[in-house]
Design a protein around this nucleic acid. Sequence first.
DNA 1: CTAGGGTTAG
Length: 624
Amino acid sequence: MTSKHLLHRRLLHALPIATATWNGRLWELSKHGQFSEALELYRQMLRSGESPNAFTFPFLFKSCAALSLPVPGAQLHGHVIRTGCGLEPFVLTSLITMYSQSNLIERARQVFDESPQRYLTVCFNALISGYAYNSRLFDAAALFSQMRQLNISFNSVTMLGLIPACNLPPHMSFGMSLHSCIIKFGLETESSVGNCLLTMYVKCGSIEFAETLFDSMPERGLISWNAMISGYAQNGLANKVLGLYQDMKSQGIHSDPVTLVCILSSCAHLGAHSIGRAVEREIELRGFGTNSFLNNALINMYSRCGKLGKARAIFDAMSDRTVVTWTAIMNGYGIHGQGEISVQLFDDMIRSGIKPDGAAFVSILSACSHAGLTDKGLSYFDMMKDKYLLQPRPEHYSCLVDLLGRAGKLDEAFGLIRSMKVKPDGAAWGALLGACKIHKNVELAEVAFNQVAELEPENVGYYVLLSNIYNEAGNLEGVLRVRVMMRNQNLRKDPGYSYIEHRGKVHLFLVGERNHPQIEKICRKLNELESLVDGLDDLKKNEGRSDELFNGTSVHSERLAIAFGILNSEPESEIIVIKNLRVCTYCHSFIKSVSKVVDHRFIIRDATRFHHFSDGICSCGDYW
DNA sequence: CTAGGGTTAG
């Protein structure tokens, strides 16, 4: 201990430090999220003989809730009773909240029931919000209705506690009834309530309701914009995210880190690399460079735009890596087919003392699958169950089916599905179906398809997959059968599409696109390119033959995007195209040949993998 | 008691 510390300690003993001073320090610590330090300071306070008062406890309960420490929380509850502070409403509410957020909601209820102060609005608010925190809409709603019956007035805080209980699609109708109630009582003008409702619609997947509400809001603050932008991002509408961001800027609203996280996430989905880079510059400029949410989003954006080196540099420079950080970088190497590095990183993560969660295991399993590291993947699956005691969820099983299936172990994959403890979902059967495509097993494909068609009858992708399997096997009768099935159910294949970014805008090409302003030039360029490369004719004969049945003959979107890219990019630059479906064999050969005769490097990212093309060499982020 | 955020196959 340094002399300075000794002096400090002596002073603590020498001077009578008033409770208020201790409380002030506790306030400082809890404000800065230093919760364990706050609890330690409290112990120090007791040792020094000072007694806590009512103002002491809320900081401590907040710390226990944040650290999920129910035992010290319960001890503190004892101190509250002994010091007679339990009648102060703000002590009571923080106590209820502490129990609610420590998986002890029943204990919270007990405290509420036993308190003579329970008829206060704030106490109802605390318990309602506790039920919502524990996803118990029914109890939260019952309490609210009790409140109404007892004629206890409610306020906007009641609503801010209750609305999040409706953040799941099946609860939206109740959420809408709350919305009516809010309007009836004139609370809709409170911006916090409006924002909370907006988020509710977003989490229920009802983007139209969210848009309507957003458009009708009288005061749209930064949080409203962020809620709407993140709503688009969470519902996969990445292009709308970028559009709304433009609107926001043009109305002079300044973004903050929350906005930028959403923008980066959308850039990642769209492969919008230069927009992403502009966001990174803005992060530097505005001094957000140490925000770990932003750094995680940057790692994800760069690795999904094919810039693994940039992603790694950001990762290496970070000092506060969480499990999300590690998952982002492992996933980056995984989608690029560099599973060995993902495996190394996983082990490094464990060595650095970070526990993997379900998402981390999804990433490492799929990384192993893409790199052909079958045994390694199997051992991670066991590790997840045995060492980390995580119950495998459906997505883990489907990764494992994919892992076994790609390795050609179709029977084992089939056996795994049948031995699953949870009911196999469409994704598990779909992964088996995908493996049957790779290994040309028509019989098992039919079994898998029948299952998946029952679970996800509307998912057109599986029909197309089966049709392609039949087509490759030369079974044209099967192809026709699939077509009839689809017609009978009124299903139509979603069009294939590709994106390419150019001058800060994302250009979308549908299969057979005719409406792009440059379409004539693009088609001329395409013809010119095709005439430059040989040996494509045979492949072209087979181009997407089964697709033809669904689309008619038309030019695949990735070739349109490539031609657009060549027309509009600087020589020797990199052209990144994102495709929603798989790149077909013909397009693959086409791009490979084109990369021999032009100066560009190409990166195509499709539904699952990366393909890097340069000088006629293709390295795939996957093994075939 | 109290509104918005990052990672997850096919």
